[in-house]
Design a protein around this nucleic acid. Structure first.
Lengths: 342, 342
DNA sequence: CTGAAAGCGCTTACAG
DNA sequence: CTGAAAGCGCTTACAG
């Protein structure tokens, strides 16, 4: 019925090439813009007839509601910030896509932020504020002040595999110390008496936890141990192992801060014609895929990534719904992998 | 000077707990809201005095401009969608954070989307439309129709390591066929005459390209070859290699679709007491870290990830600035890694 | 250099 | 069930 009027009507859409808005759909469907809006809101009361007209018009125009505009008014962006460090260990990058799969089920998307050694966390937080994210999942170091900034903003924050014992903040992690203790016990039962621990970087709380587990358990058994400081990399594993081989005596077992270093350790021992586990035993930590390959069959502790990811997502979603929920720390036990390296 | 007036002024901010807006800052600084806005726009003409007042007020209130509101009016979200598949090969997850580092320099952020076998790409594209992204980087299969949908929307699209020869769309990739040919030539020069190709999944265009390179070059040398169909996984590498070992005769060389399969191949050969490269040679493709570890020292082609990432970002940014730019395909040569497995 | 005003594309009481 | 209207927090001509 409506005539193709000229541009004197301020509701006339710029038909050419512009993306369709709810007004465009409303005009085509012959309903009000509010009606269109309701059709895209689940649970809104719209008659079947209206809904059908709108659906048709929307399809024709390729209309999709503008999430940006919606976010402005609902104050829910359905975006969660994921903060990771630039130099990720072998299993961390995977975490991002796994998180995404879980969050996607709730129509929530991930906006990615990386912090490097030179990039200031303050700058990253400012950017996060700008995007009005509904929550933050962090697998990067936050200072207490930075944690407080999130709290003050009312943005829920959950840490993934970060140790924040001294702060009342939600975390999901793996019980690193406990896992290492299981490994030590196993080694002791197999007769190991002298240990070399190849530790991870000093500035990693996770690495310190693993070291603490090793130290405490070896002391508990009143056995001897020496610690060499590595940094999680293959190269540091090679270097430290070679250092031990070149030394006066070989230990019974190498306890490595992660699987990558353990693999480096095995490679280096074999390169020196030492048999693993006959001459020396080696254990790692993480349960990375490579460790299970035939060449290594690493004895290690596998982190329950699935459970951890799931817990992270559900803890964050709960707190997005109810910001007053108290902080919670969830620690999962790792799974002992009975490989052939110990 | 200003009295603490009541709530009769509609500009009064909800002081308690609400996030500060430009109006709040304007009131505190004693300037107009437009002035505040200008202070956060680089290059806008604001007096030093105003700028200073605004800065102070903004700091006090912890104000950060709302990127959502800004995006609504500027029609630039400064968000780029990155679409990846759920089951990523070993080096793909890293891509995401590398892309992010490059894009962050331009104040652009990544909104992550994963597509799985069951999740419809149509749904993902709808979600992408909703977030008004400025561009799309895809490392997942798009149909021609889906590519056209992006074009129709006016959203620039760049593919990362995807072969789309039959479509006028921008892509960045590695010359897989050429890389394999280099490997074959090298093997031939070392005396290899009979080849077994462990191929990747049929539905991967990259895998088909690598297979094509192998086939063509082996035929060029008029040598014999047999192809066994794998799927990029370690397990398929083990299975196929074992199949060959159990067969009547051993080839001179295994040409594997990727490094992971090549590593599986080496492990399996060694498990059967065959020496690499003395008894059989093995080559891979990708240049993953693990391949360079001592146990393998894989002869392979390394993809120039840095260059590829950089090219992807710059091609996309150019097209965000000027959507009329023609599609472009950039193919980088891989780097021959002279390992010890061939 | 500055402020008043319009408008980006939605959601949501409100009245019918 | 439906429509008119206000408003989310910005940017940007426009006039001064």
């Amino acid at each position: 019925m409506e005539k193709n009027s000229g541009n004197n009507n301020k509701l006339v859409p710029q038909v050419s090439s512009k993306r369709a808005t709810s007004y465009d759909v409303a005009r085509l469907a012959g309903v009000s813009q509010s009606a269109v809006s309701r059709c895209f809101k689940t649970g809104a009361s719209v008659s079947v007839k209206t809904r059908e007209k709108v659906r048709k018009a929307a399809d024709e125009l390729g209309y999709q509601p503008n999430a940006i505009a919606r976010g402005l008014i609902t104050r829910r962006s359905n975006i969660v910030a994921v903060v990771i460090t630039e130099f990720t260990t072998l299993n961390y990058p995977e975490m991002t896509s796994r998180l995404n799969e879980h969050l996607a089920k709730h129509d929530i998307h991930i906006l990615l932020f990386t912090v490097g050694p030179q990039s200031d966390m303050t700058v990253v937080l400012d950017q996060i504020w700008q995007y009005q994210v509904d929550g933050i999942i962090a697998s990067a170091p936050f200072s207490e002040a930075e944690i407080q900034r999130c709290a003050k903003r009312g943005i829920p924050l959950v840490f993934y595999n970060r140790i924040c014992n001294d702060s009342a903040v939600s975390t999901v992690g793996c019980d690193h110390a406990e896992g290492v203790k299981i490994l030590i016990d196993r080694l002791v039962r197999d007769g190991a008496k002298r240990f070399v621990v190849l530790s991870g970087p000093d500035d990693s709380a996770v690495a310190r936890e693993r070291l603490r587990g090793a130290t405490e358990q070896i002391e508990l058994h009143r056995l001897s141990m020496s610690v060499l400081g590595g940094d999680y990399t293959y190269e540091s594993g090679v270097r430290l192992t070679q250092q031990v081989i070149d030394g006066s005596s070989l230990p019974d077992a190498f306890v490595c801060a992660n699987d990558v270093m353990a693999i480096a350790c095995i490679d280096t021992l074999r390169g020196a014609d030492l048999a693993v586990p006959e001459d020396v035993k080696v254990v790692g930590f993480d349960g990375i895929t490579v460790g299970q390959w035939h060449a290594y069959q690493l004895t290690t502790i596998e982190q329950p990534l699935d459970r951890m990811i799931e817990a992270t997502v559900s803890m964050l979603l709960e707190r997005i719904e109810d910001i007053t929920l108290p902080a919670e720390k969830r620690l999962f036990a790792g799974k002992y992998i009975d490989g052939a390296s110990a």
